[in-house]
Design a protein around this nucleic acid. Sequence first.
RNA 1: GCGAGAGUGGCGGAAUUGGUAGACGCAGACGACUCAAAAUCGUCCGCCGCAAGGCUUGGGGGUUCGAGUCCCCCCUCUCGCACCA
Length: 857
Amino acid sequence: MSPPERYNAPVVEAKWRSHWDEADLYRTHNDDPRPKYYVLEMFPYPSGRLHMGHVRNYTMGDVVARYRRARGYNVLHPMGWDAFGMPAENAAMRTKIHPAQWTYDNIAAMRAQLKSMGLSIDWSREFATCDVAYYHQQQRLFLALLEAGLVTRKTSRVNWDPEDMTVLANEQVIDGRGWRSGALVEQRELSQWFFKITDFAEDLLEALGTLERWPDKVRLMQRNWIGRSEGLFLRFKYTTPSPDGQTTLDVFTTRPDTIFGASFMAVSPGHPLAKAAAEANPDIAEFIAECERMGTSAVEIEKAEKKGVPLNLRVAHPFDETKTLPVYVANFILMDYGTGAIFGCPAHDQRDLDFARKYDLPVTAVVRPSDADDTFAVGNEAFTGVGRLFNSRFLDGMSIEQAKAAVADKMEAREIDGAPQGRREVNFRLRDWGISRQRYWGCPIPVVHCPACGIVPVPEADLPVKLPDDVTFDTPGNPLDHHPTFSKVACPRCGADARRETDTMDTFVDSSWYFARFTAPEADTPINTEAMEAWLPVDQYIGGVEHAILHLLYSRFFMRAVDRAGFGKCHEPFAGLFTQGMVTHETYKNEAGQWLFPDEVELREGKAVHAKTGAPVIVGAIEKMSKTSKNVVDPDDIISTYGADTARFFMLSDTPPERDIEWTDAGVDAAHRFVQRVWRLVGEAVPRFGEPGTGDGLELRKASHAHIRDITNDIESLAFNRAVARLYEWSHAIQKAIAAPQTPGAVLREALDQMIRAFAPMMPHLAEECWEAIGNQGFAAAAAWPDYDPALLVETTVTLPVQVNGKKRAEVTVPKDAANDDIERAVLALDEVKRFLDGKTPRKVIIVPQRIVNVVA
RNA sequence: GCGAGAGUGGCGGAAUUGGUAGACGCAGACGACUCAAAAUCGUCCGCCGCAAGGCUUGGGGGUUCGAGUCCCCCCUCUCGCACCA
């Protein structure tokens, strides 16, 4: 017998891809009557090259898409490009290539790479967010949200990234640094556009509970980010005139129960009162300036001492007429949260306690763990646990909850200057989403600033506001500001000379509705209501956990906003979310400490050496693949050497998809061996298809049907690594059956037919080649998922492990429906059991049907 | 500091509701085929022990006939948030 021909993946794969294209196999029609299934992977930024993280992400999505198609769903599996953003402008500054050209060139390159992976994508729906057609619709969406009252313009302190020269949202500041540039973020006062995400804070929080197919981790992160807390808005009356002209100092507190422990008031350095006081007092001005210089990084906050300056102002205690409280400006009060002012209760808040100890303010405990504890006092650790009130007049003896309610009731009933002194309030940590960016390569905000009319939306007929092509990047700042004519425009309302808005939108706006656009990418409205409502929510969304807050929260907000603006209902955009792990690789350095690429390194006699020079190489930690540490493997190299199926299979093997996977040559080899092995099995089996065989082949049939059942469960639960392990077992079973002359050819054929269908979602090209080889018609990619026959999985006997005193000592095979008495008799007759009983009589025999037997002596 | 998750062979990792720990893959050992090599196939492969047997899921306790799985305490690592009143 001549050796089977080796499977030439690169050649075979290209052939099948062109057949799929000719058959237009993956186009999805909105009017298809089958039940829908929407699979989406987070669309890529067109950086220029596909990396292994993309390969992993899109492989998983493609398995789900192909599996659902085989199960009879009308599957939507589109692809697009998150194409606006800074890197294109950085490239323009560096190389003088226009951002548009750079971006579209990159898209072309990456599209070709994606296509070489054999993904079952409906490319007819492709778009890039920088397409005029897309951002035109986004401008219409913006105006619709403006109309609906969901967009505001306000002056506020913003995070300014001095390197990218743009504003960042709070979500984009990490440890006091810009999320992209890494530069230390500064605070600036600017007039900005905001989306009113806080309008939906309650609902965004509440609805997290309905997202059952999201990771708990992501839901928790969003819950914390939204940060709901219930408390009391409370007004303290000044006993001395205040420099800001107000009669009360207003605070928000979640601990109104501790009001009798209050010993001072404090306001943020950014508070209007502090600013007013600073005008008259240079010491205060100096303190505020000092606070603004202080960094916001984690370490600096950790180390920063609680500091403050008295404002020489006092307020009245609301319940103790004998008491007034001094007002400070303090460095640990955030202007962003609540009212930017607090009452300090040192005994029950650590920060307040630190502050009080430093400035020698009274520390009065008002909650104690037990009523019996008469000596309870607070040292240098605030008491924040549960307990009962004391030292608190009418609150004495109450629980914290009772006391909170009692204080709130009294304050709501009492008035100062015609308004209630207190108000129960819910506060959120979530801030409105600032979307203004002072950059060129983004969606222009379609408004005009008119000296007479104020803010005027660009009329429908004048849309889109197109980005001018003739821009330069040699001066810092926003190129749109430097453009000779872009900002010069007549007011659409009065015709006077006006200024066009030059800010563009945060690119997270682009990605907050693209999944809705995919449902009707050609629609002449931003969203086709019918298509969106039919397709959304996305049934399975797959991407990196790094988007747990930003993109996923913004998208949830957008669907609510879009609903309010009348475009249709889709409460939650993503019904199922899966966050996949990263792709890692060993790192290498030469003796000079310079990073080396993996393909520069070779193993010789178990030692890593430089392939060309033979110089020793230091093997470092396993880290996420990144350009800086050079531990990258180019998908193109793998696909052109081993084929896409090998890369795909490797990505699904061994490691659970939510964990980081280590890319290793050995792992790729193993995946490739499996591809070859399957092809070889088909080659060996086909000549046997006509043979009757001397047996019934029942063993193989049982194994196949059990594997189908298990692989189905594995793919449904996205446990691809388990499905891969079962495919290995299945191939071993088939290999044995081929070698056994008993196996009828028809049974071999059935098993191969089933296995090909089962691995087709993972290795679609190999599936087609095998499909054809076993004589099937049509495409494996269009074939139905294999069924299994439960009757074949029913056994007549069962082998039970037998334990003596909890340790396994033997096995016993009994009829499946054997009576416990019979099993017990059989077990006690076993030599092994007798030996380990050592003459003792068993006290008890525990029989768990179908599971285990335990003899207890 | 707060919150979440994870610790299983040399490695990646399996293990329904508590029921045979280590599936499958990698690496390794031996063997077959071959003039030889590659490829492939077969056997072995947690630790100690010649064996019988004993030990073993980060450590320590507990519940149970039986614990990787449940409970309590501790250790380590990863991630997220971070002065949120």
